[in-house]
Nucleic acid binder design. Sequence first.
DNA 1: CATTTTCTGTACCTATAGTTCAAGAAAGGT
DNA 2: ACCTTTCTTGAACTATAGGTACAGAAAATG
Lengths: 192, 192
Amino acid sequence: MGRPKQFDPDAAVDRAMDVFWRKGYAGTTPQDLVDELGIGKGSLYATFDSKRALFDRALERYREQQADTLARIIDQPGPVKPRLRAALQFIVEANAADPDRRGCLAVNTAAELGGADPKATLDVRHMFERTQGALEAVITEGQRTGEIRSDIPGAALSAYLFTTVVGLQLLVKTVRDPLDLTQVVEAAIRSL
Amino acid sequence: MGRPKQFDPDAAVDRAMDVFWRKGYAGTTPQDLVDELGIGKGSLYATFDSKRALFDRALERYREQQADTLARIIDQPGPVKPRLRAALQFIVEANAADPDRRGCLAVNTAAELGGADPKATLDVRHMFERTQGALEAVITEGQRTGEIRSDIPGAALSAYLFTTVVGLQLLVKTVRDPLDLTQVVEAAIRSL
DNA sequence: CATTTTCTGTACCTATAGTTCAAGAAAGGT
DNA sequence: ACCTTTCTTGAACTATAGGTACAGAAAATG
């Protein structure tokens, strides 16, 4: 009943995610959102309530999307190290191909709101824990098969590898050429 | 001649640095600065021209300050690994003690402005290169004395270690307890 | 169709961002 | 003592942030 929406809210969240990703939370204005989503301010606020609520949805959307992407690379058959290498190298190459060098929305949000905004801090923490968990599964698998060193506990090793992942996501934004970070990926894999 | 300044501009930059550090660039308002610096808006703009110019000065101030801090820890006599461990552990403990979890201003700025703002990107890049260079000096020293593995080139190894440093600076902002990252520090040192 | 419901665009609103300016205050020069 | 210079405070200003309130328009239901 009633008039149906003229736009797809989920698609709008996708576009909003992109804006926040490029400009950060504080750096994004309602006008930016109106321009990029292609809907009126009325619809924007009627549908999403507030800039912050939309940001929260965008962050959640990012979580779903990234979980997929990472899982698809990491959950392959075959030896463990190449799978991990592919995951890290994907970060490097995706950002080398991105003229905006957006990095990772979760990492950017951690930097901007972490420590200051409890809700955002928690959301990002959960995303981080999820990713680190995925790495840990692969690493302990590698430790069982002997592909990965066992003198460091799997939990510590995956926390360490995840720290590298986060560092990479940050560094792609400032480095002259993201592909230079390939040597970091190699070093990280070799040290496992 | 003329009326002398009633405040110390350098001290004001210090306080501004602190505000930007806590709130980010876009998240800091002129009013925030007025409140924290304890000077009028007129003086603020007469002395520093613009919010952005003040931010640039704050970032430069941060560079000097951090370079000192890191160098002091790392340029000690004695075996190499403990010195590197102390440097990483310092990051963890400093943030564990900071109720605001500010992390690192350079890292925060990289996340917020990296890729989008050329000047800020360059400034941060230079800071990063400097720190990475300091790490490299210590690592190649360790490789000469045999304390550190030589199967990975010093440049790659220090780029890798620096990536870990950056990751740590980010993660301290979201993790439940920064001290949990001590295991990451240990793993990083052991993998050298 | 008439009705009801929900949507949409536009105008509007208040507070603040980011900056400038006018008028006065504190020092040195003469 | 006065003049000049440089500083200070605080009001003022324009544009935008972030959001609300309407006045229709469009679709589903009966």
